[in-house]
Design a protein around this nucleic acid. Structure first.
Length: 631
RNA sequence: GGGCCCGUGGCCAAGCCAGGAUUAAGGCGUCGGCCUGCGGAGCCGAAGAUCCCGCGUUCAAAUCGCGGCGGGCCCGCCA
């Protein structure tokens, strides 16, 4: 029984005590600032002080007298400190309870009671005309961790990646390769997705400045949407090549998907037409007859409160040339996610992923995909898309999304470059003095995920080789890879999602301090103790933890479910990362002060180390970090 | 013009949504210690903070409200 469970029991007991006294107020529980004050506290006496017009301390005394401590087995005593009611846990029973819980639950340790839901998570969503960069990687890492977390809690999770193959960007590349005869074979040493990104940066501008090419591009978009023609098939082949490369990058980071939803298939499946029809039936759309948007199908938003502050709230869903906009398609796609549309995608098996699971892809010539619709659809998108996502949500309500379903845009801030890194990449001196430089695919100013991994790997490889000169090349490379991906994943997940990340290379290759490798190092040195001890312990009856380091480590381990419970409400993955750091800190302090292997084996400490490994291991699984026993 | 987000030691940052009790975590950097002892990718210690400013709510504000200031973003027949 950890902090979460004990806090809940205390909440109930205090609630009963209040009942006896005739007081009715919600019982808040918290952790006291220093351990000497107690393990769990409630400031409930302060909440009552005002209406009772009495001193908190007196009220606390009164409440404490009514608390039935016998119902709280692991509580040793209760104290009143200036009005705070502090519960002091039994120094033996509490650790024993926590350790035995961890040792018996193992891979399930940390799970909390939930109402099981079917949850669809969409993430990554990079345009299929360029490589994944550190911005899309943040998206993917957040999405992947969310998926892992929700699965860990016991939800049914479907992970999808939306491939925007019918938009403007793919059209640019198609025009370049198909009409302007840019070779489709990348130059030596460049992956196709990276090459594609360069072609885009070069030709996007050329096309936008030439009226003839612009007309051609509009025609290409229409052909791609229609399908069943050479241009559409050509474009699909281009996109598939890029997506394959993007998937390889994602796999390197331990990110896998269940299904790829191609935007063209939103149209070809009839889902798009269905959604537009539904909106039309309900009078939510109209054809604009004048002005800049003449001839476009618009959705009416001008009278909706949330959109009042926009200059021109109504949004284009179908352009005057008959092609669909991103928002239009996304409304339709979202209606599928939640099972609102009777139309189905056709899918086929595409590629086997390194995790053994075959990824499905929507495809014109596939089989009907049976999906009853998610209870909750989470879309991981960067903050700049907040308004369009609000439009999607609004449209879904109009189409008839039941209140039991939830459409949840999961917004996060983008990744930008430090002036120094941007200037190094481009050799543009003038960028150096800038604090923040935003990435831009069009300007070719992007830091690719592949390049980041290579850079980090190089540093990690050196360090690993230094430490293990006797190991095989294969072993060193494998371990270095695990450390590198952990390093990148951790650095992208540990920051609050509302904060802009200013990416800097010299910071990215750091392996000490608050980093993924630090966590893995801590895990590995704990593994060494278990191995060297050469015994095993499955439960404990007694412990004698006298040092603050032991007590602190026990408490940290016991807080895991509390942390996950909070995270399940906020979906803030960084709080789990921060917890892992605290857990590692506690272990390292313990490690210095409390030997496990002395003349004999300290069984209680051994059990504590094992509990630490299980807890940290479960957290690794959630955040997507490999568990290595030697690094 | 309107809206959203951020503002915590030189730098990065946790805590803020669910207000409390202390020296306001931690990391980088700086300075000083610790390996014949379970792995120094570590540990211990030192210096370093008007929690952007003002007003308000409250017994209590980094945390809540209002008003400023500074930075970023959004308001496209791009996605």
């Amino acid at each position: 029984m950890g902090f979460l469970e004990e806090a809940e029991k205390i909440r109930i007991q205090v609630g009963e005590a209040l009942g006896k006294l005739g007081y009715y107020v919600e019982v808040r529980v918290e952790e006291p600032p220093i351990p000497e004050l107690g393990d769990i506290a409630t400031p409930v006496a302060f909440d009552l002080a005002k209406e009772l017009r009495r001193k908190p301390s007196e009220i606390a005394e009164e409440i404490i007298r009514e608390i039935d401590v016998s119902k709280l087995e692991v509580v040793h005593h209760v104290s009143n400190v200036n009005g705070f009611i502090n519960f002091h846990m039994d120094p033996v029973k509490y650790p024993v309870a926590i350790i035995n819980e961890v040792l018996s639950k193992r891979g399930d340790y940390g799970k909390i009671p939930i109402v099981r839901k079917r949850i669809l998570i969409e993430h990554t969503n990079s345009n299929p005309n360029k490589a994944l960069h550190i911005g899309t990687l943040r998206n993917a890492v957040i999405g992947d961790s969310l998926a892992r977390f929700l699965k860990f809690l016991g939800h049914e999770v479907l992970v999808v990646n939306y491939i925007d193959d019918s938009g403007s960007q793919v059209a640019d590349n198609t025009v370049a390769h198909y009409f302007m005869k840019v070779p489709t074979k990348p130059p030596e040493g460049l992956k196709f997705d990276e090459y594609s990104g360069k072609v885009y940066a070069e030709y996007n501008e050329k096309i936008s400045r030439d009226e003839e090419l612009k007309r051609l591009k509009s025609e290409v978009i229409r052909k791609i949407e229609e399908g069943g023609n050479e241009i559409a098939e050509f474009a699909r082949r281009l996109s598939e090549e890029v997506v394959k490369c993007q998937l390889e990058t994602a796999w390197d980071f331990g990110i896998f998907y269940d299904l790829l939803n191609w935007e063209t298939d939103v149209i070809r499946s009839g889902i798009f037409q269905w959604a537009m029809k539904e909106l039309e039936k309900r009078g939510e759309v109209y054809v604009e007859e004048e002005g800049v948007n003449k001839g476009c199908l618009m959705i009416k938003l001008r009278d909706v409160e949330e959109f009042k502050n926009l200059k021109a709230p109504d949004e284009v869903l179908i352009r005057s040339d008959g092609t669909a906009t991103y928002v239009g398609k996304d409304i339709a796609y979202a209606s599928w996610k939640l099972g609102l549309t009777p139309r189905k995608f056709k899918v086929k098996e595409w590629i086997q992923q390194p995790n053994g699971k075959t990824i499905l892809t929507t495809h014109e010539y596939g089989e009907d995909y049976e999906f009853p619709g998610a209870d909750i659809a989470i879309t991981v998108v960067d903050k700049r898309q907040e308004y369009p996502q609000m439009v999607v949500k609004h449209a879904l309500k109009k189409i008839g999304m039941p209140p039991s379903k939830e459409y949840h845009p999961y917004l996060y801030e983008v990744v930008a470059l430090s002036g120094e890194t941007a200037s190094e990449m481009t050799s543009l001196e003038e960028l150096k003095s800038r604090k923040v430089v935003h990435m831009s695919g069009r300007r070719g100013l992007v830091f690719n995920a592949n390049d980041l991994l290579k850079t980090v790997f190089q540093k990690v490889y050196e360090e690993t080789k230094k430490r293990h000169p006797e190991e095989s090349e294969e072993w060193i490379r494998k371990v270095s890879m695990c450390l590198s991906t952990a390093s990148v994943r951790y650095s992208l997940i540990k920051t609050d999602r509302n904060n802009l990340i200013v990416f800097d290379v010299k910071d990215a290759v750091r392996l000490e301090g608050d980093t993924g490798p630090y966590l893995q190092y801590t895990y590995a040195r704990a593994c060494r103790i278990i191995e060297k001890a050469g015994v095993d312990v499955d439960s404990v009856n007694e412990v004698s933890f006298e040092t603050p380091e032991e007590q602190d480590l026990v408490k940290q381990i016991g807080k895991f479910s509390w942390v996950l419970n909070t995270a399940s409400k906020t979906l803030a993955m960084n709080t789990i990362a921060v917890y892992m750091r605290h857990l590692a800190d506690s272990f390292n302090s313990f490690y210095e002060k409390c030997p496990v292997i002395t003349d004999g084996i300290r069984r209680d400490r051994f059990a504590l180390v094992k509990s630490f490994l299980i807890t940290m291991g479960n957290a690794f699984d959630i955040i997507g970090i490999e568990k290595l026993s030697i690094i």
